[in-house]
């Protein structure tokens, strides 16, 4: 399904730095290191505001929900900051919403991390823990902390390049990204899955897309040049959408 507000170009279209007028909000809800997300945005030419305030968030072109830490704490903080409805509204608007790491998990209906917690409910599905992942009979550590590869999901193999016109545009299938997590998302509708990865004998959704929502379990801001391309794609698509509407 084509997104309403932004379209992600092919790799050839994104070599130019985006206009510095593209403004990104990095939602600051008190957890984790938001600085690397800021640096990556700045590196591809976006103007960044790191903020917990909804007025500021609403004044930007693209909203990034990052995060490491516990699901329950994060949701409690988002509620306290009165951001739950704001994020849901953004998801239903034309404005791109990007979830990273814990951010992808928060989009789901619920998580079973230390008891069952309700999520933002933007994407229907659940968040589950790696249960004794094994590789060649060796038990793997949880959290998964490693560079892991992202692949096209099986159901989209017929499509040619399923990452065309998405933030993953231009990446080779099997590209390495940096992951740190113990939980992963299980969307109810498998068609939202944009990439899959494998940890031992578990295959999981490592990136998803629904309308203008893009989210990934890996950290593109810590994934070298391949990860920066994801930010570049976002900046470029937003810049083009703005340019289009201004003309």
């Amino acid at each position: 399904m084509a997104a309403a507000g932004v379209s992600y170009g092919s790799r050839n279209d994104v070599t130019e730095r985006s206009s510095p007028s593209v403004k990104a909000a990095v939602v600051d809800y008190g957890l984790g290191n938001l600085f690397s997300v800021r640096r990556a945005c700045e590196h591809v030419g976006m103007e960044v505001v790191v903020t917990p305030r909804k007025e500021e968030i609403l004044g930007t072109d693209v909203v990034i929900l990052p995060g490491v830490g516990a699901f329950g704490d994060a949701m409690a903080t988002l509620r306290r900051l009165d951001l739950v409805e704001v994020l849901r509204d953004i998801a239903n608007s034309d404005r791109p919403l990007i979830g990273i790491c814990l951010g992808i998990q928060l989009l789901m209906s619920e998580s079973c991390e230390f008891g069952v917690h309700k999520g933002l409910g933007i994407i229907e599905g659940s968040v589950v823990r790696f249960e004794n992942p094994q590789e060649r009979k060796r038990l793997l550590k949880v959290p998964q902390v490693q560079w892991n590869r992202i692949f096209h999901p099986n159901h989209r193999r017929q499509e040619g390049d399923p990452w065309r016109d998405t933030p993953l545009a231009g990446l080779a299938e099997g590209e390495f990204m940096y992951f740190v997590h113990s939980f992963y998302v299980r969307p109810t509708d498998p068609s939202v899955t944009l990439s899959v990865s494998r940890y031992g004998d578990v295959e999981f959704c490592s990136a998803l897309r629904w309308r203008n929502v893009f989210a990934c379990q890996f950290h593109p801001e810590r994934s070298g040049s391949a990860g920066l391309l994801v930010y570049r794609n976002v900046a470029s698509a937003v810049g083009q959408a703005r340019g289009g509407s201004a003309a």
Binding site: L31, V68, G69, P143, V180
Partner: peptide, 8 residues
């Protein structure tokens, strides 16, 4: 680890 997340 509570303040910044275990992975930090």
């Amino acid at each position: 680890s509570r303040a910044f997340g275990s992975s930090t």
